[in-house]
């Protein structure tokens, strides 16, 4: 290799000048690092990429990249991403959420995005808490986790996003841990390259409201299985999963969403013929 040859795409090419305002120690810093590395690995120019998000600490990520970004309202990022991708299939669209944004207020869109199978990569930074609103329980919060809004815990069974994604028709299901930024980057690359709706759940600690999540680094482990394209097998694995298996857990081969196209193009002016009397 030639020493003088510069790297074609460096992760820094995908970072914007806007400085993140996440708490020091927040897992989302790692996710940003992983995301920009993934983008560099894909080698697409930043203007061919779009990052769409909702609201939450995690959803601040688009502005920290150098790509086209859309920072919308709480819970609706998948809808924006879907519209963008269908209207502009030539753009690579990455949608980013948090567990509150994606699984609670945006839960319905999650189901239907999986079903619809538009060629998107969906990354959810799951910290089992509403970070931005200062520590309320989210759908993935453990039932006994004490918060001001649910003293003593919610007592509710946590949402299982991977099982839901699989059951709803996602074409690629993976789990990553932000503390392994390189592995996370590779999973994001894989998700983007895989056709259809690809879902990557990223365990991304909230050091402020969930300091206990610093221990996740000792709990995560590579999934002891190879990816399957059999949804039934994947479902069995995911149902008995400890929540810390990392890697690609399902890789389907369903054809991505394709809107109908016309054989011949008509001029808009000609469409009123059907009304002429």
């Amino acid at each position: 290799m030639n020493a003088a040859e510069p790297l074609k795409c460096r992760p820094s090419d995908y970072k914007s000048e806007v400085k993140p305002i996440w708490c020091p120690g927040c897992g989302d810093y790692h996710v940003l690092m992983a995301l920009t590395r993934a983008m560099a690995a894909l080698g697409l120019p930043p203007e061919r990429l779009a990052v769409v998000s909702g609201i939450g600490c995690s959803s601040r990520i688009p502005a920290y990249t150098n790509c086209y970004g859309f920072h919308g309202v709480h819970g609706r990022s998948l809808a924006v991403a879907t519209g963008l991708k269908i209207a502009r299939p030539d753009i690579t669209v990455i949608c980013a959420s948090g567990d509150g944004d994606g699984y609670s207020i945006g839960g319905n869109h999650f189901l239907h995005a999986c079903r619809r199978n538009v060629d998107l990569a969906y990354i959810v930074m799951d910290n089992h808490i509403y970070g931005m609103t200062k520590g309320q329980p989210s759908p993935t919060t453990e039932p006994d986790f004490d918060t001001a809004l649910a003293p003593g815990g919610t007592g509710l069974r946590p949402f299982n996003p991977l099982v839901v994604a699989l059951a709803s028709g996602a074409n690629f299901v993976a789990r990553a841990y932000s503390g392994n930024p390189n592995e996370t980057a590779e999973l994001i690359v894989d998700a983007i390259k895989h056709p259809g709706f690809s879902f990557v759940e990223i365990l991304s600690p909230c050091v402020t409201y969930r300091p206990d999540q610093r221990s996740w680094k000792d709990r995560v482990h590579p999934a002891p299985v190879t990816p399957t394209d059999d949804p039934a097998r994947a479902a069995r694995r995911l149902m008995t999963d400890d929540g810390f298996n990392l890697g690609v857990l399902y890789r389907g081969n369903r054809a991505p969403y394709k809107p109908p196209t016309a054989a011949a193009m008509l001029a808009p002016e000609s469409l009123d013929e059907e009304f002429v009397v």
């Binding site: 779009a50 924006v80 991403a81 519209g83 753009i91």
Partner: peptide, 9 residues
Amino acid sequence: NMIIGASYG
């Protein structure tokens, strides 16, 4: 939101 995304595009 879909139309916002498409129009943004």
